[in-house]
Design a protein around this nucleic acid. Structure first.
Lengths: 243, 243
DNA sequence: GTGGTATATTGGTCCGACCATTGAATGAGG
DNA sequence: CCTCATTCAATGGTCGGACCAATATACCAC
């Protein structure tokens, strides 16, 4: 498997570097970042590249840029939004577990709600699409964890779209990005998955049985969540939980 | 009430303008934006300011910048994350209702889950804080809708922190920002609110009764959601729903 | 102590140049 | 006619330096 070489622009690299230092609290909230000129000097790059990075950090709510005063580090747990989770999971380790554990709990209720709303609002054409996906899943050969992971996501993404709720779709986009960061680290999460859920879910949706759909989705998520956390426990036996 | 005058940087203004045009589909997904030099020329500003704006649009997943090729508009419903909702609610109107309606449904299950987890994990000191907040709410005079709105949020934000779940806190940050955009547009949402919920919730939390806490929070959200949507219906009598 | 003033520091904008990547036009060779 | 390499124009990426605008600080006059 060959991958194209990483070609990150300078401002991207600066962004990553400052972001990591802020998230790992090497820069504390309230502290001033070095001035743009200083940063440019330290990193031996042009001030424009530094500025682009700082502007993006501000958009991510990690810093606040004040004209004439400098850039101040914010308390991201109080200012940043849900999309920050994507940046907390960088494979670097420590913060990953907190982010992943907390996001599994969110995913549980979100997917469950998606299933519930879909049961209320689904129409024939969408149902047909889901049935097709179910067949493709059933046709997968047993060892293909990656394929199942992909189709599983597709299934619930289609569900999100039929829920006719933009916020839920965007939320699922964010969650997708977080898991995408972990790049197959969890391909084994479907190792012992019960593939009958998808057909059952289709039936519940067809019957517009919202509580059963929600319950099925919930159980499915509970199972995969257990698998994810178990995989994590293997990697890092001792991990304290932090708020 | 005096407000400081708005002093937006050029790149901020460019960002806003392009963002609005993309979100309102004046630029369609797949379409190329004008080149940086063209944009700078059209807007009569420097290319650096344009670049800062474009970089931020890329971070928001609204465009993709390709070296040597240009900037391509993305389908934000498929690429952007939850934080995009903040940008969909700009008071400009049409997209607001979709965003607000969908976010109320999310808020419902999120706050409910927050209450549930808090009931499991809460300790004495946090409970004392919540009781103090409850007293402050009870002490509010009857017409003070804005004050109630503020304290109501504080209450559930404290709840989110005791849930020991970073994702839920960040999610609530995002939701807070969306409602913040609407700047008191919904100050009347607590007009007929039942202030006894907070005390009841404290009792449920003290008893670690997760299902009752979740249920109380859910009912409270259902009621305020109804109020919000009713306020919207007043403003814009006819509004079709879109996915 | 109050309030103004000068100055240094810092972010905001601009200009013009050059490098790096891509895609399309061009043309040579089959 | 097709294929491939070359060339070239368009576009994003980086640079250095200049100047404007806002802020903080130290200092001074009152």
């Amino acid at each position: 498997m060959l991958k194209p070489p990483e070609r990150k622009s300078l401002s991207d690299q600066v962004f990553d570097q400052l972001r990591d230092n802020i998230l790992s609290l090497k820069f504390m909230p309230g502290e001033h970042l070095p001035s743009e000129r200083e940063l440019a000097d330290i990193l031996r790059i042009n001030r424009s590249s530094v500025r682009e990075a700082l502007k993006r950090l501000e958009q991510a709510r990690l810093i606040e840029i004040r004209h004439g005063e400098g850039s101040v580090v914010l308390d991201f747990t109080a200012t940043a939004g849900f999309d920050l989770l994507r940046h907390l999971v960088t494979g670097s380790g420590r913060l990953d577990f907190i982010a992943v554990r907390s996001i599994t709990e969110v995913r549980l209720v979100i997917i469950s709600e998606i299933a519930r709303l879909s049961a209320l609002r689904i129409q024939e054409p969408e149902l047909a699409g889901l049935r097709a996906l179910t067949d493709k899943i059933a046709a997968l050969k047993n060892g293909d964890d990656a394929g199942l992971q992909k189709l599983d996501f597709e299934f619930f993404y289609a569900l999100a779209r039929t829920s006719e709720n933009l916020a839920l779709v965007l939320l699922l986009n964010s969650i997708r990005d977080v898991y995408g960061q972990l790049a197959g680290h969890f391909s084994a999460m479907f190792r012992n998955a019960d593939r009958r859920v998808y057909a059952k879910l289709c039936d519940a949706l067809a019957a517009h049985d919202e509580s059963r759909a929600a319950e099925l989705a919930r159980e499915h998520m509970e199972q995969t969540n257990r698998a994810i956390l178990a995989l994590y426990a293997e990697d890092q036996p001792n991990e304290e939980q932090v708020s």
